[in-house]
Design a binder for these strands. Structure first.
Lengths: 226, 226, 226, 226
DNA sequence: TATGAATGAGTTTTCATTCAT
DNA sequence: GATGAATGAAAACTCATTCAT
């Protein structure tokens, strides 16, 4: 509603899609995200969020009209950042579909690992009211379309070979989002290492003979964990 | 508790892992499954379930001790059937890891398409109380281990080539389970067609040069939809 | 209602007020008594009773019209036995008010110690519906009146000296019933020992100079514990 | 929880153990006390309490975490006041065990008559959860111990003569608490009159030859009724 | 900005009771 | 005599939300 710290995507992060600053969310969203990620939208009460914030319930209603608005804000934040980064990742490799595919998968993997809780929230989209769900679905389709175009193009160019482009796209995205099921920051793999492995799997999946190590431009992308 | 129609996996289905009879669940579980799949565990009230059954709330408590017990029964039913089928699919192809991999993926795809709602329930595992969650996690690990052994073996034999076996296994399973996000019975693809496409993607992912059409033993597996 | 084992007070016990056979109650009453004594009438569910009996709920309704009827039967059993015994105890000592008082107190003490759970039930009288409560109150008044007559008579004869007969009677009965708060079978004192101590306290309370040991006719009153 | 009107024992009452101001309880406790006294803990629903308050159920949960917490607060209030008063009553008569005994009994009698409903609640202690029960039992033992010390000392000094000190203490307390069974404010006896009668009974019970009228320091102890 | 207090509608669960078998 | 199955009512408690301050 009028949450002062929510100014959209950080402009610095907006320059390098590989770089992830710690997620800067206003307090309500930050704590709501924790709670939603842990117990789901319906499994989280507004009081839960307030308790995590160390504040009282009405304080939350000062910033957001209702619980649903919090979910909307979070999902919007997440998908907008994903689209923004993935689009830039693909644009960076204009002219080379294999690199484009690699960059997309690498980027999405980084989004999922650096922003695991936000990525988890995708499963809560069914809790959106119809109108909000439609808006979110449109954005999600947009994210998917970016990949769809790459795969389509690569197939046309004979660089990829799949029976069904749409199925491949879905499988690629599901594979990446599925990282949320096991990845934990501080685990054995860094986001970049996960990214390389998933790019390699993706390239194979599309029957490219390239390998991730050769395609990915090694870039130092530290980015503190959120 | 004392639900008379819950007799475990159908013995006929137990013979052919490719054949899916319509899911035979006792009324409580059947309607609870519908509701949980649509709105999640926390988004479903016991009254919702009762209304779907055309009965009153206490009738549900006659059969199940509480709401949690219903979720436990459903998740158990689902995972046990998955393990049973996938194990038989792999055993059927003993001696040929590529066929084993194909059968596993094909089988899991069929499970997800023929039993979409049960597959969706996997995301509700976080609603399980600790003890129940542990039991379910063990079974899920078992299902994953079956695939892990195949990938491991295929890699040793030089039939597969991946940077990280564990990551590949997770990606394969996430890819298949992710089918729940878009597959709808009656849609353009039959479960078998989905299966072939995903097997092909899986083979590519592991850098096998085989194609699904060549590996999969074409079998007429009608199986009415549940 | 039609409970076959409830034939009223055992005729053997009816002969010697000092002798307590193990309480012979039909199963429903036996288990209801346990439950009511432990958790009170409102704290006990019909299912609790059924579970203690190892039977199902409707079985209870075969014998008793409802939960209230069970309480009525128990309270009636208890108070009728108390009245019967105390009356005989007093009659036995006709002609000697001090002995009558002693016998009454001794008898009531035995009732409370040998039938602790039944005595405890007296606190549940408020759960009786008006009509049932009235009947029970009448019987309770009858029990109290027996003592009241003795104290009155003793005071007239100059054997007792109290400021207020009614208050003394209530205090005596409260003192005896209060034994339920601490007495446990198998504890350090036998019912007979408790009886002697309380008779001695009662005699003092009424300013008699007699002592319990001198007044009480020592009688071997084994009576197995209920 | 955060009930603002519960400030512990009134400091004025704290000065004179004979003086009873009208009981000042926060609304929830006040109405819960009425209900618990009338129908018992299990016989009272939270809605009953809310209705008596003229408020809705959740209003109660704003002040108390649950129903049990209300009982705990009430029992604590009662027993703490009893201990406080009785201790001061005994201390006031230091040096004279007979006067100490008289003061204790007189004080407890006043507590029971001026605070009949609170005294009645003692029978609800079995509804306490284990931990709460333990705490309450400890306080109750403390109250009993104060009397136990007096009786013990008086016996050593030859002022009292009982067969069993412990039994006498229990009988004395049961006798006083038993007043709840018949005493009603506005009845024929004032609390002070009841007190004198019960002190006289108590002195007799312990075989003291003193009479209440001689021992009790006549003090104007008006104290409006609660 | 924030909170104390409150509420209507809902939650899960249990209650006493019934009835066909 | 006893049970499986069911129910209307009510239990304790929580929900998202509001509003005066």
């Amino acid at each position: 509603m009028r949450d002062p710290e929510l100014q959209g995507v950080d402009p610095v992060a907006a320059q390098d899609w590989r770089r992830f600053e710690p997620l800067k969310l206003p307090p309500v969203l930050r704590h709501a995200l924790e709670a939603f990620a842990a117990h789901g939208y319906h499994g989280t009460s507004v009081r839960d969020i307030a308790n995590r914030m160390g504040q009282t319930v009405p304080a939350i209603y000062y910033y957001y009209q209702n619980k649903q608005a919090i979910l909307v804000a979070l999902l919007h934040t997440a998908i907008v950042e994903d689209i923004d980064r993935c689009r830039r990742a693909v644009e960076e490799a204009t002219g080379d579909v294999v690199a484009q595919l690699s960059n997309y998968v690498y980027c999405l993997t980084l989004c999922v690992t650096y922003r695991t809780e936000l990525a988890l929230l995708d499963y809560e989209r069914r809790a959106l009211e119809p109108e909000n769900r439609e808006q979110y679905t449109d954005l999600r389709d947009e994210l998917q379309q970016i990949l769809g175009d790459v795969v389509e193009q690569g197939t046309d160019q004979g660089r990829f070979d799949v029976l069904d482009t749409a199925a491949a796209v879905r499988a690629l995205i599901a594979m990446c989002v599925g990282i949320t099921a096991w990845y934990r920051p501080g685990g054995p793999l860094t986001p970049q290492q996960v990214g390389e492995r998933y790019v390699d799997l993706a390239l194979g999946m599309l029957r490219s003979t390239d390998r991730a190590a050769d395609v990915l431009t090694a870039v130092p992308c530290s980015g503190e964990r959120s």
